[in-house]
Amino acid sequence: MNENGKQKLRVGVIFGGRSGEHEVSLNSAQSVMRALNPDKYDVIPIGIDKNGRWLTGDVVGTLTEGKNSSRPATLLPDPQATGLMQLNEGENVGITSVSQLDVIFPVLHGPYGEDGTVQGLLELANLPYVGAGVVGSAVGMDKAIFKQVMTASGLPVLPWLLVRSSEWHKRPYKIIEQIEAILVYPVFTKPANLGSSVGICKCNNREDLQAGLDEAASYDRRIVVEQSANVRELEVSVLGNDEPVASVVGEVRPRREFYDYVAKYVSDDSELIIPADLTQEQSDDVRRLAVQAYKAIDCAGLGRVDLLLDVANGRFYLNEINTIPGFTQISMYPKLWEATGLPYSQLLDKLIELAIERHEEKEQLKKSLE
């Protein structure tokens, strides 16, 4: 109970995970947990280590400092057991309840968290959760499927092609020839299912391309190769379920060659321009495209839509949607909403409200033919 006698919501914040974005997730989750209003919420940290083991207790200490201060835990795919369970070992082996949960706030970036896998577990457990469902998460995570959905929806993307890692390893010279026949240097190589610019390389020649394909193949079995262009990098934060709204438009001007992992989370030396220097018409077009892309993949709750403005011809291209965008202090998603008039803590309130609203709507749907 809070001081007004109201029951506080028990919010399970899931973070960590066994993807290449583990550390980014830790930073985002700590920012989220610090900002959740303690008068409204009881926060239950749920950590996942790099081996995929779920933990409860002092999870941050365990995952960031190597402390032995947490215990194995799990969520069951059982609607009758909507709580965090502790796995007991030794003489008291078994499962005991740690806390009931009212809503889950996943702060998992990349595979095994942002790609629909955890969302599937939460659907089975019948728990409300922040963010997109299974389909929206999976499509937003997979760069190749996302581009195919954009094209099918009549939304613009840069020229690209898909390379399977197995084909690259078997027939490297044939793959190089195929790429060079369709695209011109420079090109980008990207793992299809990874975010935060992990594994992305800009390739200016054949030697770079070989190295970029090797790098991307070390992270994923599918690789997106995309045409580079002289572009401005724009980002829009979208919020909502069936009637999403877009924030002001921001622009990223990286001081590195492109907006890579180091620029996003380590160096803090990229120039973030909010709002972007666009005409009103351009800004309206970008926000409209962002909402259209968001709806096209059936996103929900939140998503940061990244677009490109071709300097040569003035055209906009959809780049990707991050369905669980970064929430660190230098992350664009909350910065854009703050500039639009929605402060960080109120943004978290709205996301939790949207999660519960969406869950209640799904509970009204028929689940049998009777």
Rank of each mutant, 00 (worst) to 15 (best):
L158C: 05
V224D: 05
V224T: 13
A216H: 12
L158E: 10
C201E: 11
C203N: 08
S197L: 13
L209Q: 02
S196T: 15
K174G: 06
L209S: 04
P186N: 13
I223H: 04
A216L: 10
L158P: 05
G212K: 07
R171K: 11
E177Q: 10
C203V: 07
D220C: 14
A192D: 07
Y173L: 06
H169T: 11
P159K: 01
Y219A: 09
R164E: 12
V225G: 03
L162H: 06
P186Q: 11
D220N: 13
G195I: 15
A211D: 14
Q210E: 12
G154D: 04
K170C: 04
L209I: 04
R171I: 03
G199N: 15
R221E: 06
S166C: 10
L161D: 00
L213D: 01
E177K: 01
L194G: 14
L209C: 06
G212C: 11
N204I: 07
A192K: 06
S166H: 08
L161Y: 02
N204M: 02
N204P: 03
L158A: 14
R164Y: 11
E215M: 13
P156T: 13
N204L: 11
C201D: 15
S218E: 14
E180Q: 06
S165I: 07
E177W: 02
P172Q: 09
I223W: 10
P156W: 01
V187F: 00
Y185R: 03
S165N: 10
I175G: 00
S166A: 10
K174N: 13
I175A: 05
N205S: 14
D214V: 06
P159Y: 12
V224F: 07
